[in-house]
């Protein structure tokens, strides 16, 4: 943290909790910041805030941007999304799409 300096032991523990990288990150992190690639383990396996609520506790920011949601839902989780599921049906669905913003046209329809 830059603006707050922990002084007592409880504060140090809070700082560790606040700044620690969560093992499963949500779709959006509070404060934005650079985000590395991540693949959720699947929303039915873990409690993963961001799938249920956005960073302000509401639902308006869910599944934004759509490209991000597309990969997350395809790669690890299939429940709410209208995308093929990589684990069982369409392992190569996005193989020609390295960058969704540019290559999204290369993603084709899949029929079960």
């Amino acid at each position: 943290m830059k603006h707050l300096t922990s002084v007592n032991r409880k504060a140090a523990r809070m700082e560790r909790a606040v700044t620690a990288d969560p093992d499963v990150v949500a779709l959006q992190r509070p404060g934005g910041g650079p985000q590395g690639p991540h693949i959720p383990l699947g929303c039915s396996f873990v409690f993963s805030p961001g799938w249920e609520a956005d960073s302000s506790g509401g639902t308006a920011g869910l599944c934004q941007p759509v490209e991000r949601d597309l990969f997350d839902c395809h790669s690890g989780c299939f429940w709410p999304a209208q995308v093929p599921d990589q684990l069982n049906h369409a392992p190569n669905w996005t193989s020609k799409c390295a960058n969704a913003q540019k290559d999204w046209r290369k993603i084709d329809l899949v029929f079960p």
Partner: peptide
């Protein structure tokens, strides 16, 4: 929580 933090100017 009983945590003690030192504040900087913006905070």
């Amino acid at each position: 929580s009983a945590a003690v933090f030192q504040l900087d100017e913006p905070s």
